[in-house]
Design a protein around this nucleic acid. Structure first.
Lengths: 118, 118
DNA sequence: TCGATTGTCAACCATTTGGTTTATCGTTTG
DNA sequence: CAAACGATAAACCAAATGGTTGACAATCGA
């Protein structure tokens, strides 16, 4: 089951690694879009765009509702949350440099004087 | 220059889409590791692991310091922060369902009574 | 100096990816 | 009904990916 998590993260990050797909997700923040809507801005065949959407669907980032001949897609952000949760484990590392700087400044402060400010 | 950002995100997300590479990053949270250190847990040739490390480096997620014949790698989390920033644009969407639920509960509350708690 | 160690490079391989084109399916509409 | 429309499927292609092996380069230690 943790195994499945790995596969899921693989799929999510892979889906996000393509600019076209990220743009589609962006577009979906405006609300439901049809496949044609999503395809339109990207200079590529409808079939090509359709494949991208399937990748997003496969990663669980998009859900599809079929109405007649039109397929409506909507953003499914839960998996993005999972990706974000993974990233959160590293949050302290991208704050590290800042932390180090703060520590340094504090030490300098303490060492340099017994009360005077810089 | 925003163009460059796209390419960077492509590389970062692609780097993260592989389980082996994510495990390597995890390992690097413990501190600097040599290429051999990083390769050891993954049933694959050293050359194979080396290629993964290059992908991480190419994405700017790892930096390398060469000392004699040993290559020390360390985590470079800045790019993870960028990925996280991208994801943050979607935060409100994965809170959406919760928001809707809260709204619903509040409405029920207001409608159901004029002061009594549940 | 010689052998072992650390790591890369190059060539190769199977599979996946991102894209195309053409055919087809189901739906809507004139 | 027939034609147009929205979308997928299938076959195909070039390039990238994830992995291998074998040769090599540089360094270290005895």
């Amino acid at each position: 089951m943790v195994e499945q998590q790995h596969v899921t993260l693989d799929r999510v990050f892979h889906a996000l690694s393509d600019r076209t797909r990220r743009a589609m997700l962006q577009r979906l923040t405006e609300g439901e879009k049809t496949v044609s809507d999503l395809a339109a801005p990207h200079a590529m065949s409808l079939a090509g765009a359709s494949k991208h959407i399937r990748v997003l669907e496969g990663a669980g980032l998009v859900r599809r509702r079929i109405e007649g001949r039109v397929h409506f897609c909507r953003l499914e952000a839960e998996r993005l949350k999972q990706a974000d949760n993974w990233l959160k484990h590293y949050e302290r590392f991208w704050n590290e440099r800042l932390d180090a700087l703060e520590t340094l400044l504090r030490e300098e402060d303490e060492q340099a004087n017994g009360g005077a400010s810089r």
